[in-house]
Structure formats: structure tokens, C-alpha cells
Nucleic acid binder design. Structure first.
Lengths: 151, 151
DNA sequence: CTCGATTTAGTCGTGCACAACTAATTCGCG
DNA sequence: CGCGAATTAGTTGTGCACGACTAAATCGAG
């Protein structure tokens, strides 16, 4: 007989017992926190993630971008079109394989990296986790993603 | 000098160092896992969350639903309209306050609860966490949500 | 070499998510 | 009581996210 509140958790239909809801709510809360910072860079949150990949590895195919971000081409194609329209990148068919499209940063896209440098620290600060909690959270989230993805 | 891989984490612009990306990817992976189960119930994932709240507390206002799920009326209004069109709930202006709209389950909406009973267990199984990991993850996610939301 | 299978981007339709705004109703101060 | 402020749903516009599909290019077995 535990004196603490009951923990039905497994198989419960109560919203607040659901890990999935905690995950969903946290994800939206974090992107909401990013919004004002990214507004100053003229980026949305998914666009920011694409830029992170490109700053790490320029000239990547749409396919490999999709693998890195776990997004479909039907999500990426219009998103990349908007980033191209904003002058941050160029899309060009690869000569060696005309099916593939290489995404390359423009000068403006590469320079945006400098202005984005303060963003992760500001968010990390807002999340308010200790380095240990941060590492633990990442570990658990990757475990969930891996378990839930396969089969 | 740690022999393991470096952990720059704080202030890094590498995608895989970002807790925010782990969160975003996990959230989408989990909802993707729900999709085939919810398809059988004729629900989307956000619709399922709304139904969870209604099974817990029938006859709730749009406002209170928004508080529970942290969603705006501009998201809920069309979503509720679709659930109403599918015969799962009714919307009626409250007599005592004509600004407010009460959401009430129909018979079909209440009965759907029985068919949904197996969903949380199936998902919990797919996530593959120990009860301790599950509790820890929920705790960390709620901490992040709370820290990131205020101010 | 050839032709069906595979790979790669992209389009289209549906349903969130949210900011900005509107309209109706209720509240509450003077 | 009267009227401006606040509350509540809802609409509109933009941008994801993803399934289903298409078109073009490449691959590979025979």
C-alpha cells in the first residue's frame, strides 16, 4: 500500500498517464519557445532543422536530408522550395544521377549560421535541465524512437 | 581524457546534439506508431487525445479542452467539427453562458472507449521502456514543458 | 541490349498547429 | 443602469506532416 498517488500508467486511458501526451506536449512547447528566436532569423522550426543539417554537411541530396531528419520528400520538397525562395539555398539536379537533387547553401545561407549560434544556448537555458538530465532525456528519447520505429 | 566520443552538447549546432531534435523525432515516431491502430477506430492522433479527455470528463467546454491539451480554439474548432461530423460528439451552446460551447459524447463516442482500451498497452509495449524508464521519461518531459512554458 | 523493377523528387489532398483577427456574449466599474 | 473591457468560439492564412500517387532516370536479369 503506497501512500503516494496511485500510478495506474500501464493500460490507463487517462490523458495524464500517457507518455505519448507528455511527449507531444513537450515537443510543441519547445518549438513554441524557439519561435520568437527563429522569427528573427526568418526561419520556421523545421526549416531551422534543415539548416542545421546543411551547416554540418553542404551539398546533400533530398533523400539524405530525409534520412537525417526522418522526413518524407513530400514534406521536404515544398519546405526546400520556400528556403530557396528566401535565398538561403539552391537546388540542382546532379549530373551523375539526374534523379537526385543536390541542396547547396548560398552565401546568405552559410552566413546565417553565425546569427544562429546563440540559439541552442538560449533554448538549453530555457529548458533548465542539468547536463545529466539533458543527456538522460536524449538517451530515453532515442530509445523510444528506435523501439517504436522498427518492425 | 575520456576515451568515449566527445559530448559538446551545450551550444553545439550539430543536429544530433540537440535535445529538441530528439524530442521532435520521438514525438513523430510515436504518433506514426499510433496511426494504424487509430485508423481502425477512425481517429487521428489529436482526435484520440480529445477523446481521452472526453472519456475522462464528458460535457467539457472548448476552453477547458484547450487547457487540458494545450491547444488553441483555432486548432480545436475544426477538429471538433470533424468529430461531430463522424457522429462521436455534439456541440451545444451553454444556456447559462452563451459564449461557451459544451462538448458531449454521443452514444457512439462513449462506446468507442471500449474498442480503444487496448491501444495504450499496445503502444506501451512498442515503446519498450521499463516502468522506471517510463516514469522517468514522463517526469523529464513534464519538467521541460513546465520550464519552457512559463515567463 | 531490353524491358520491367527500383530509386528519387515532386504533386495533391487531408488534417493538424498557430498567429491574427472577428463576432457574440458577459462582466464589472462608475 | 450603461458601456468599455474581458472572455469565448470561430475564421482565415501559412506552413508543416504524411499517405497515395506520378514521372523521370537508373539498374539489372535474361
Amino acid at each position: 500500500m503506497s501512500p503516494a498517488a496511485a500510478e495506474p500508467s500501464e493500460g490507463s486511458l487517462l490523458l495524464d498517464d500517457q507518455l505519448c501526451f507528455a511527449l507531444y506536449a513537450a515537443s510543441r512547447a519547445v518549438t513554441a519557445r524557439y519561435r520568437p528566436l527563429l522569427d528573427e532569423l526568418g526561419l520556421t522550426y523545421p526549416q531551422y532543422l534543415v539548416m542545421l543539417v546543411l551547416w554540418e554537411q553542404d551539398s546533400i541530396s533530398v533523400r539524405d536530408l530525409g534520412v537525417a531528419l526522418q522526413l518524407e520528400s513530400s514534406t521536404l520538397s515544398p519546405l526546400l522550395k520556400r528556403l530557396e525562395a528566401n535565398g538561403l539555398l539552391r537546388r540542382e539536379r546532379r549530373a551523375e544521377d539526374e534523379r537526385s537533387v543536390a541542396i547547396r547553401l548560398t552565401e546568405a545561407g552559410a552566413e546565417l549560421r553565425d546569427r544562429a549560434g546563440t540559439v541552442p544556448l538560449a533554448i538549453g537555458d530555457a529548458m533548465g535541465l542539468t547536463p545529466e538530465q539533458d543527456a538522460l532525456a536524449k538517451q530515453l528519447l532515442r530509445l523510444i524512437t528506435a523501439n517504436v520505429s522498427d518492425r
